[in-house]
Design a protein around this nucleic acid. Structure first.
Lengths: 185, 185
DNA sequence: GAGTCCATGTAAACAGTTACATGATTGA
DNA sequence: TCAATCATGTAACTGTTTACATGGACTC
């Protein structure tokens, strides 16, 4: 997983407390990932133990005290290492940890190696395109006449259509990302 | 979650062993959901305890023995109940248990109330459309001139673009599903 | 007076992944 | 001979969600 790395990206942009991180998550990468405050608090503690972040307790008047977290040197190094590392996880669209990880890496790309990231996107694009071909093959074989479908067969086809649409959309996005990165050199 | 219900749908179409279910999962709703054999074996045992499925041990020659599972009466009732029940889970696109659940329900729609399912799709469509509006609002405010973006701002915009595309694709699919269901009465 | 925001936490349950184990059959 | 397929399982771990708890400040 990449929750610690997602936190590193967010803290790199702006130091903050666990509470702030939880609300920021909803606004920034919320479309790919949401994390509850419990997850974030627990993760922050292990990150502190690993030396990836520093903590500064801040006393406030009129509000509860808070702990402001800042990225440590080893956290910066870890983030850069992770961004350059190939995407892991299996290729099935189901859990889709890779797209999620990619979104996090992209958001933190300025803290890592953009060209290494570019390569990962090209690789992911190829895998996604292959999967889309598989789904389209299923469609051709199992539903040669989509207009005539009724009942259970219709429903099955619709589910497959969802898979195809999701892959197409994913591919389109990856192409947009690649084009934008290439135009930004 | 809905793993037991996904298994009920699959077993309703065709009785089978845990092993068979695991491989079927990849082919049918694999684009939305993949489950490992360990998950399936564990779930099947609790489903048996709950009386949702019956087991028949089958001895084979030249291969390991297997346990063939069949949907019990109470399993059929539970599946119908669950299909009619409104979609649960939060609306964030991140974990997206609702789209996953909807795909399972759609695949098993002939074992439940199709019109109740139709209503759920309409409701989900409305929520997704609202979320898309939120994302488009972010885009307008934070990135009024997308062509001029470079570096970190460009990357942030690309991540948002992914969220927007995913929602658009999801909406398009829901519309396709609604149109198909309405044409199938 | 009720509800939301800020801020952190414990505890428990549930979901999902990875590793290990067994063992015969079939095909390259 | 090596790998894959069939078939089920234990165990440990990681990840995620939900419930409960506290308590002041602010807004309706």
């Amino acid at each position: 997983m990449a929750l610690p790395h997602a936190i590193l990206v967010s803290l790199s942009e702006q130091s903050g407390s666990g509470y702030e991180l939880a609300s920021r998550f909803d606004r920034s990468i919320g479309h790919f990932w949401s994390a509850t405050h419990q997850q974030i608090y627990r993760t922050l503690r292990t990150m502190e133990d690993d030396g990836w972040v520093h903590v500064t307790p801040v006393t406030q008047q009129g509000r509860p005290d808070k702990k402001v977290y800042t990225v440590a040197e080893s956290g910066r190094a870890e983030l850069a290492r992770w961004i350059a590392e190939p995407l892991t996880g299996d290729g099935s669209a189901a859990t889709d940890s890779r797209t999620r990880d990619l979104a996090v890496k992209l958001r933190g790309a300025v803290y890592g190696d953009v060209s290494a990231l570019h390569q990962q996107i090209v690789a992911l694009r190829a895998e996604r395109a292959a999967l889309l071909d598989v789904y389209r093959g299923y469609e051709k074989r199992q539903f040669p006449e989509p207009g005539a479908l009724r009942g259970a067969a219709l429903h099955q086809h619709l589910v497959l259509r969802g898979g195809i649409r999701a892959e197409e959309s994913s591919l389109d996005w990856l192409d947009e990302v690649l084009a934008a990165l290439e135009g930004d050199q």
